[in-house]
Design a protein around this nucleic acid. Structure first.
Lengths: 146, 146
DNA sequence: ATTACAGTCTATATATTCTATAGATTTATC
DNA sequence: GATAAATCTATAGAATATATAGACTGTAAT
């Protein structure tokens, strides 16, 4: 499961993507319209700013806005930013690699092989899931097709 | 990430699969050879017994053994047993479904759509990962092919 | 019957992480 | 200077993960 932090981050980012190039949006407005605890959201948006994804402006007329374009921001990045590795086992992560104490030979480990496949598939899908792609899927046309 | 419980369970099950039809194996032997804390492993094996995957025998000559065949036991089942849902969001799980408070329309939610795809792919791969399949992958032939 | 063996059950301890909130501070605008 | 809004620091409470201790139950061999 992804954390609430990631879930809130995604929801906020999708909202900001819908308002892309329309100027800064207030934390308060995002919190209220998306039903996210405001103080919690503050920390999340600030992290996204430090990651270079959002920009901000203080004072009257201030708020947060997307620094990157909605095509450039994908869910793999967001999940890694807050929750760390996407893989299900430390021995198949790129950035958080850790050897299993129990493991006798990593090269021939069948368990590792399975989880490497899962990671590859998952990362591929999450990288393709950009903010624009998510908004694209919201269209009711998609709904009818199913 | 999967929990230690699941990791230990998988490792123990793979070992029991290698010894399939060779009679009961001691908890102690599994714990030692696989470097798993014994008391922790006891609880895990007991859970697997209650789930109908393992059988056990008490007293001298006792231990645990696979009740199901290695072809019948897959990683999706094991993960669900200990960690619960495989999906990354409660709103795309089969058995642990929970509506998102933040969600305005689940049917057209683009975020949900992405995570449903991820779940489908993941579950498919994990269901195919039976104990026999894992052992098959351990062969060094596989190693050379890469 | 007795004894040793090995799984089973209950309880608990410890640590870590997740979620959330409070309050003070800084910066920008009018 | 007053107001608005983001930023920073600290912390609190809850939940979960990991692990251990010890008593109990059933089995088999002597």
């Amino acid at each position: 499961m992804i954390s609430k932090k990631v879930k809130y981050a995604i929801i906020a980012l999708v909202k900001l993507a819908r308002e892309y190039n329309k100027g800064p949006i207030l934390i308060r407005d995002i919190a209220e319209s998306e039903k996210i605890p405001q103080k919690f959201l503050e920390a999340i948006l600030n992290d996204l700013k430090h990651a270079g994804i959002l920009g901000s402006k203080k004072g009257k007329g201030g708020g947060y806005y997307l620094l990157k374009s909605p095509e450039e921001v994908n869910l793999a990045t967001i999940i890694r930013l807050f929750d760390g590795a996407i893989a299900l086992l430390p021995c198949v992560t790129y950035r958080y690699y850790e050897r299993c104490k129990e493991c006798k030979d990593e090269e021939t480990c069948g368990i590792r092989d399975v989880f490497r496949e899962v990671r590859d598939e998952t990362v591929e899908l999450l990288k393709a899931a950009t903010l624009s792609e998510i908004i694209r899927r919201e269209s009711s046309v998609k709904k009818i097709k199913r």
